[in-house]
């Protein structure tokens, strides 16, 4: 479904990704772990199509198509979702209105009729239960005045509503207390299914206690230096990243 081949990319002028190879199939949950500045967030942003990053080599195919030929909105409509490490606040744009616009943009792309406001409200209230987000936060402007945990839960709510084929969750666990982490982990687990792939990008292994990945990759200095099963994450928890960084 997602095939990353020898991907090189720069953030600004600085080479960050130095040859990434990764294949993600439907239903799989991959964890990409790595120390700070190893290229984790760059990978997420390059896949989502953010400005300021230049792809300098390699290719990414999404369902057989060239991902880099698509605008960010096309990627989203084709089923790629990025959960942000730092979700932005958007004063003046209501959370529900925003989600409805996004949802209908995706439906339109799929050739489905747009959903009206009343039906959408029913849908979003149902989905909000999944991450225990109160109705009040649905009517407020997007993320404005939300706590750190509420912002991350709002990201998972968006994922639930948009129903992507691939969710890339960038440091979704950062800044969460243990209760919020449980809620977010529960939300992600509820969204796991045979058709949906999930890529968890994280510094700390603790999220993986709640969301158990099929594969764990370690990203160091722009390369995936090691892949393994869940035990690899436990090893990282015990030993840190140092033992893998020696070869640099």
């Amino acid at each position: 479904m997602l095939e990353i081949r020898d991907l090189h990319a720069k953030a600004g002028d600085k080479p960050v990704l130095k040859g990434i190879d990764l294949v993600v199939r439907p239903g799989e949950v991959h964890a990409i772990m790595g120390p700070n500045a190893s290229g984790k967030s760059t990978l997420a942003h390059v896949l989502a199509g953010r400005d300021g990053f230049a792809v300098t080599g390699g290719s990414v195919a999404w369902k057989g198509k060239d991902l880099f030929a698509m605008t960010p909105e096309q990627r989203a409509r084709e089923g790629i979702f990025l959960g942000f490490q730092y979700p932005v606040e958007i004063p003046g744009v209501g959370n529900t209105y925003f989600l409805k616009s996004a949802y209908n943009a995706v439906r339109k792309h799929r050739g489905e009729p747009e959903m009206d406001a009343a039906d959408f409200l029913t849908l979003i209230k149902e989905k909000a239960k999944l991450v225990e987000l109160s109705d009040g936060l649905l009517t407020r402007p997007v993320n404005e005045g939300f706590s750190g945990g509420e912002k991350k839960r709002n990201e998972i709510l968006q994922m639930a509503v948009l129903d992507p084929a691939l969710a890339i969750l960038d440091e979704t666990d950062s800044g969460l207390d243990i209760d919020a982490l449980k809620i977010v982990g529960h939300g992600i687990n509820a969204l796991r299914n045979r058709d949906r792939a999930i890529v968890l990008i994280t510094h700390f292994p603790r999220l993986l206690n709640y969301v158990v990945p099929d594969v764990v990759h370690v990203l160091i200095d722009g390369r995936l230096v090691k892949s393994g099963h869940r035990e690899l994450a436990l090893q990282l928890e015990a030993k840190g990243y140092g033992w893998l960084e020696g070869g640099k």
Binding site: A48, E73, R75, A76, V88, A102, A105, H109
Partner: peptide, 24 residues
């Protein structure tokens, strides 16, 4: 630009995203 990207990453087209933000 961060807000524009956020909206676009959810499937909202560039023009529609601008419209939303100008209206906001």
């Amino acid at each position: 630009p961060d807000v524009l990207f956020y909206l676009r990453s959810r499937g909202i087209g560039r023009e529609e995203a601008q419209r939303l933000l100008i209206h906001a």
